[in-house]
Design a protein around this nucleic acid. Structure first.
Length: 136
DNA sequence: GCCAACGTTGGC
DNA sequence: GCCAACGTTGGC
């Protein structure tokens, strides 16, 4: 059983529907060291909550890691890494940031504690809580 | 549109 | 090596 993560994307830039359409995508462009460390800790098969930031502010789907960290071709300095993601399934019901903040079990979530972090770990209990909230 | 949080840069 | 200034992200 792998670890769980959460990645953020502005839906206007790359939405979960885009990932579904593409079937697979390169998750590059991360330029934050803490986020990069999380990318490096991902293993193939790890499941990832796909969160829409700004316009949406909700977890909308689940993705999976298809390729572990490798040098990010979009980083000229060669310091950062990318992973590949594939879509797993959309959530039956999006879980909004508002809902997450109102849920005591999620108060310790990394993405809530540090709202600007674009890649963050999700603990097993947090994962289970969010999936339950996503049931229709 | 504003602002808080945080990372990065550059002067000293 | 410190810290002020600045830029970016993302919630509100």
């Amino acid at each position: 059983m792998g670890n769980h993560w959460l990645v953020k994307s502005e839906p206007g830039t790359y939405a979960f529907a885009d990932l579904q359409r593409d079937g697979r995508t390169v998750w590059d462009g991360v330029r934050n060291n803490a986020a990069a460390l999380h990318l490096k800790a991902m293993t193939v098969g790890d499941e990832v909550l796909f969160y829409h930031s700004q316009d949406g502010k909700a977890v909308v789907g689940i993705a999976a890691v298809a390729r572990e960290a490798y040098p990010d071709a979009s980083d000229p300095a060669g310091r950062f890494v990318a992973v590949d993601l594939t879509p797993v399934r959309p959530l039956a019901r999006p879980v909004t940031l508002l809902d997450m903040k109102a849920t005591p079990a999620l108060a310790g979530m990394e993405m809530i504690r540090q709202s600007r972090l674009s890649v963050s770990p999700v603990r097993p209990d947090e994962w289970a809580t969010i999936l339950k909230m996503a049931e229709a």
